[in-house]
Computed example of a mutant assay.
Amino acid sequence: MSYSTYSYIVTSILTDLSMLFTPITTSLKNNKQVTIRLASSNDASALLDLIKQYLDTSEYIPITSSDFNKTVAEIEAWIEKLNSTDNSIMLVAEHNGQLIGNLDLTGQHRKTLQQYTSAIPLFEISNPLTKKFPSSSGNTAY
């Protein structure tokens, strides 16, 4: 995914997080199609598997899958909480019906900080299409 596509998506989300997210399908550098869409509770099991996969392979995340002891029910609750909060959202990236990443935008809950949101672009970490991971320069195999 190009930086401009990523910037457009994040800017669109931050403009009004209370809106419903319209899925975006984009072409990767290798011409494969990826859809970025709102996560649903039906994604919880696949998302848990994906998170455990990239926790064990990323050199940038300081925990491993053995440290991450969430259940499918807890992931469902996390998705529902983010997507029901006005200034937060959980998106997933999907290729051929398989989750390949996620993006968690978590808004601040303190009233004076609610205009701020933290973006965690985890969909750049794992690429099961090529089994490659990003370099420290931020370039990915996408």
Rank of each mutant, 00 (worst) to 15 (best):
D104R: 14
E59R: 15
N31K: 15
S7M: 08
P128M: 07
K131C: 13
I89V: 07
T57Q: 14
S137A: 00
Q108D: 10
D43I: 08
S40E: 04
L103H: 05
E124G: 15
L99A: 05
E80G: 08
G138S: 11
Q114L: 07
N69K: 14
I125N: 12
I75Y: 05
I63R: 09
S45I: 05
L14F: 01
Y142F: 07
P128T: 09
T15S: 04
N127L: 07
A93I: 00
L20M: 04
L122K: 01
G138H: 02
V34H: 04
S88C: 02
S7W: 06
A93G: 01
E59S: 13
A77Q: 15
S58R: 10
T130G: 09
L99F: 02
I75C: 07
P128E: 10
N83F: 03
F123K: 08
H95T: 13
S45T: 10
A119V: 12
S66L: 07
L14E: 01
T26Y: 09
D104E: 04
L82G: 03
A141E: 14
I89S: 06
T22Q: 13
E74Q: 15
T25A: 12
T5I: 15
E124Y: 14
I125S: 10
L48E: 03
P62C: 07
L17E: 00
L14K: 00
N42Q: 10
M90D: 07
G101K: 04
L82V: 11
T15E: 05
M90V: 03
T130Y: 13
F21Q: 05
S136Y: 03
M19C: 12
P121A: 10
G101F: 01
L82N: 14
E76I: 01
K70A: 15
A46G: 14
H95G: 03
L105P: 03
H95I: 00
S118N: 05
E124D: 12
L28W: 12
K111A: 12
S41N: 08
D43R: 15
I79W: 08
T57D: 08
T25R: 06
T71H: 10
P62V: 04
S4N: 00
T35V: 06
S40D: 03
E74W: 05
D104M: 06
T112Q: 11
T22I: 06
V34W: 00
D43P: 12
T140P: 09
P62D: 06
E94T: 02
S137N: 01
I89G: 07
L91V: 06
S84E: 03
S126Y: 15
I24T: 15
G101Q: 02
Y142C: 06
L20E: 05
Q98L: 08
L28V: 11
T130F: 09
D67Q: 14
L17N: 12
I63N: 10
K29D: 04
